[in-house]
Computed example of a mutant assay.
Amino acid sequence: MCKRMTTAGHILVLNGPNLNMLGTRQPEVYGGDSLADVVALCTDTAAQFGRTVRAEQSNHEGALIDWIHEARGTAAGIVINPGGLTHTSVALRDALVIPEVPIIEVHISNVHAREDFRHHSYVSPIAVGVIAGLGIAGYGYAVERLCSLTS
């Protein structure tokens, strides 16, 4: 079942561990764009739909979970790149159902063309969509899709 965004609220864009190093970390895998470029893309895309973005990044699982808890009743949808927590964190997955809003999981690289351990996601089964391998453009597509789910 596809959850629909409420008409009020921002889009929460969350980035997990190591994504603060975009642009310098393995550019052959993740490209040359920075996290600031990701945030600008999401902000600009949301603005086209009259929406705002709250963007956060942490290398700490607990911080991500706290922001997800705060999203209940305030966010209209969540775009999340959990980084390595995608494959390991049941706690993050459990937190993502708390806000009761649509979630889109984003990965800059094609995780399915990489190491076997990256093929499993705890987030995908609860997401309305998954975008992988399209570089940072995937974030823009995710924000656009969440905006189109507006009631």
Rank of each mutant, 00 (worst) to 15 (best):
T7L: 12
V143Q: 02
T74A: 06
L92T: 06
A132R: 11
T86Y: 05
V39T: 14
E56L: 12
G140V: 02
P125R: 05
I11N: 03
V97E: 07
T43I: 07
L146Y: 01
R114Q: 05
L14C: 11
H119T: 04
T150K: 12
L41Y: 09
G84K: 01
Y122P: 02
R93W: 14
M21V: 09
A91P: 00
I126H: 01
T86F: 02
F117E: 09
V130Y: 06
T150G: 09
C147R: 01
V13Y: 08
G16R: 08
T88R: 09
L22M: 07
G23M: 03
V130Q: 02
N59I: 15
H69S: 11
S124K: 04
L85H: 10
P125W: 15
I126R: 02
N15W: 14
N15K: 13
A40L: 15
I98S: 10
G138T: 10
N20S: 05
Y30S: 12
E144N: 08
R118Q: 01
D33G: 10
E100T: 05
A76R: 04
L35R: 10
R51F: 11
L19W: 11
V38A: 07
V53D: 04
P17Y: 09
D66R: 06
N59K: 13
A137G: 08
E100A: 13
R51D: 06
A132D: 12
P125S: 08
R25H: 04
D33W: 14
V13P: 10
L134V: 12
G129C: 14
L64A: 06
L12Y: 03
I11Y: 10
I136S: 07
P27M: 10
A142G: 00
M1D: 10
R51H: 08
V29W: 09
G135V: 05
G140I: 01
I98C: 06
S34I: 09
I131F: 00
E70Y: 03
H10D: 15
D66W: 07
G135A: 02
W67P: 02
I126T: 00
V111D: 03
S34N: 09
N20D: 06
Y139I: 00
L14F: 12
I80S: 00
T52K: 14
T150V: 14
S151T: 08
H112P: 08
P82W: 06
A137Y: 05
D37F: 13
E115Y: 13
T43L: 01
K3V: 08
S148K: 03
A8D: 13
H10I: 13
M21C: 07
S121T: 10
